[in-house]
Design a protein around this nucleic acid. Structure first.
Lengths: 204, 204
DNA sequence: TTGAATGGTGAACATTGTTCAATTATGCTT
DNA sequence: AAGCATAATTGAACAATGTTCACCATTCAA
């Protein structure tokens, strides 16, 4: 039984977040429970609730970790390819791969919803913003001359769409009928959307 | 207290589904509970469990109802516009509107997940398929000469993307910063993607 | 050494899904 | 008409959930 000062507050929080992450990875979001997490880290529920407001905060931290991993993967993809268009395609595919490889974690991010009255913390929203700004950067390089608002519009449209393909990919295997792999859809989306978008810009 | 033959099995099921729907509409998916539904319809949990395998089946029925409503709205949109390209845009915007107007129901459809071991019933999957085939029809009319597999690929890509925009629209108000309304994103997606796709086809 | 402050506990409460023996109402048979 | 079998309905019970909080234990300062 753990005793006082065996671990600092920060250590306990880190352990709890880790435990939550592995729970999500193995059993999915539904497999997370305060008692399970507490037992994993060798403390009791009471201690857990001294370190986190509620279970949602804990899950939020676990999800933020996944988001950070995702961002790292996308940033790596960004640097692996320098030609603007293939770069975006590569980033999109990396996004897709991440969702497939870490299916449970991925699903946890987008399925978890704060109860009414809860507000998403800034440090969490900041991670999501970072994702979007990475895309904005990549789109900007594709058409540096374009208006900033147009870039923003295009990258949000594109990224929402990429996200949609990922969403419908996991869970429902809508595409598992020999014909269209999610990678094919992704390719189709990015090339068509962006080629028309670039072309439109060169006219003006 | 309800007595035998006050209602038929079918009536009870219908009442339960209705109660579930209003619960979802008012409190969201998390607001649904077996006891609440039972109380609403004037029976007890036991009766509920004689009419439904479990709570997920009940939710699935409520969601199927929403899907039917959605399909009806999309089909109406289909017939409101006959020019192929504006038609698709109109359908997409109708989809978006539906998600905005019935936010809770819409979220319930896409956030609800069957526990492991559960399989999505055929009658439910059929409703989803109907949505996709409506889009396929609309895309086909845009380019009747194209290969069937190409049409399938394009409509799935397009619809996943449309779906993605809807998803990121509800919940996070990512777009609420004066600039880009979801309608603008939708317009941008559909016109750009499809114009490039059509153009590609006319080359071959 | 004593006392205050803080770490940690685990029992308790309400609420969840789900089951099932017991009860009650119905319809059929005699 | 009476009785019986069948089916509908109940509600108590179980395990598991999130959350709280009075209590105990440990540490550190005085």
């Amino acid at each position: 039984m753990a005793r006082r000062n065996d671990h600092t507050r920060e250590e306990i929080q880190g352990m709890a977040i880790d435990a939550t992450r592995t729970l999500i990875a193995t059993e999915g979001l539904e497999g997370v429970s305060a008692r399970k997490v507490a037992q994993q880290i060798g403390y009791t529920v009471g201690t857990l609730y001294q370190n986190f407001e509620n279970i949602h905060e804990l899950i939020l931290h676990a999800n933020a970790f996944s988001l950070t991993q995702l961002l790292a993967a996308l940033e790596q993809a960004y640097h692996q390819e320098s030609r603007p268009m293939p770069r975006i395609i590569h980033i999109a595919n990396t996004y897709l791969d991440f969702g497939q490889m870490h299916e449970k974690q991925w699903a946890a991010i987008f399925r978890h919803t704060l109860p009414q009255g809860f507000v998403m913390p800034d440090w969490y929203q900041a991670r999501i913003d970072a994702l979007f700004s990475l895309i904005e950067r990549a789109v900007w390089e594709l058409a540096p001359g374009r208006d900033k608002k147009q870039i923003q519009l295009a990258s949000r449209t594109l990224w929402s769409s990429v996200h949609g393909i990922c969403i419908l990919n996991i869970g429902n295997k809508l595409y598992s009928d020999n014909i269209a792999t999610p990678q094919t859809l992704m390719q189709s989306l990015v090339t068509h959307y962006l080629s028309a978008w670039v072309q439109e810009g060169s006219k003006a």
